[in-house]
Simulated assay, not measured.
Amino acid sequence: MKRLVLAAAMALFAAQAGAAEPIEGNWKTASGETAQIAKCGSAFCVTLKTGKHAGKQIGSLAGTKGEYTGEITDPANDKTYSGSGSVSGNSLKMTGCVMKILCKSQTWSRL
């Protein structure tokens, strides 16, 4: 009986650990704007919904299980960088890098 309970607990833990953290939804950016992340083709598109650059698509990310990679555009200077996003609960850590050496990160909050 102990083995059955232990096996069931381990299976439940493994299922939760493998569950994907969804990136889709509305996020408050570090500058206070709202960005929407939605499925577009085989990727997820990041579009600003509020602020000076509202309506502008600023990124495209692909991935699963809370880890995403792709491109991120800084709307202020219109430069595009290799980027990544990591979801943990209601937080999204967005990182943009130049030549994978110089990187800048922000944490966004789920709305």
Rank of each mutant, 00 (worst) to 15 (best):
E21Y: 00
K28C: 09
D74E: 07
K2T: 08
S105Y: 04
A11V: 15
L61F: 11
Y81H: 11
K65V: 11
I58H: 08
S86L: 11
A62R: 00
G70L: 03
A20Q: 03
T29N: 01
G63H: 04
G89L: 09
A17R: 10
K100W: 12
A62Y: 00
E67F: 09
G55M: 12
G89R: 08
Q106H: 05
M99D: 08
V5Y: 03
H53A: 15
T64M: 01
G63N: 04
I37R: 00
N77S: 09
A19V: 04
R3V: 14
A62K: 01
I72S: 08
A54Y: 03
Q16E: 04
I72Y: 09
I37T: 02
K93Q: 10
N90V: 00
C45S: 03
G83M: 07
K56W: 10
N90R: 00
I58G: 10
S84K: 15
G41C: 12
K65A: 14
E21S: 04
H53N: 15
I37L: 03
P22A: 07
G59Q: 12
A9G: 15
H53P: 06
T80V: 14
G63A: 06
A62E: 03
G70F: 01
T64K: 00
W27D: 01
G55P: 13
K79Q: 10
G85V: 07
K93H: 09
T69E: 15
A43W: 09
L92R: 06
V46N: 09
K49N: 02
A11C: 14
K65N: 14
C103T: 10
I37D: 02
K79D: 09
L12C: 13
M10P: 11
T95V: 15
S88D: 02
G89P: 13
D78N: 00
Q36K: 07
G41E: 12
S60T: 08
S42Y: 01
G63S: 05
P22L: 05
K93M: 09
K28F: 13
S60W: 06
S82W: 08
T29S: 02
M94R: 02
F13G: 02
I23F: 07
T34H: 13
K49W: 04
S31W: 10
T47G: 08
Q16H: 04
E21T: 03
S88F: 00
G70T: 03
V5G: 02
R3L: 15
K93A: 08
Q57T: 14
K2I: 13
Y81C: 08
C103W: 14
L111F: 01
T29K: 01
M1Y: 12
S86R: 11
R3F: 13
E67A: 12
V46E: 10
Q57S: 11
A20R: 01
N26M: 00
A35T: 06
C97Y: 14
E67T: 08
A43P: 11
I23Y: 06
L12T: 13
K49S: 03
T107D: 08
G83T: 10
G85E: 04
A20S: 06
H53C: 12
A62P: 00
G85F: 07
A14R: 05
V98Y: 10
C45N: 01
A20G: 05
L12G: 14
E71R: 11
E71W: 05
I72K: 07
K79L: 12
A35P: 02
D74K: 07
T47C: 06
P75I: 15
Y68D: 01
A76K: 15
T73C: 12
S105G: 04
W108L: 09
A38D: 06
D74G: 05
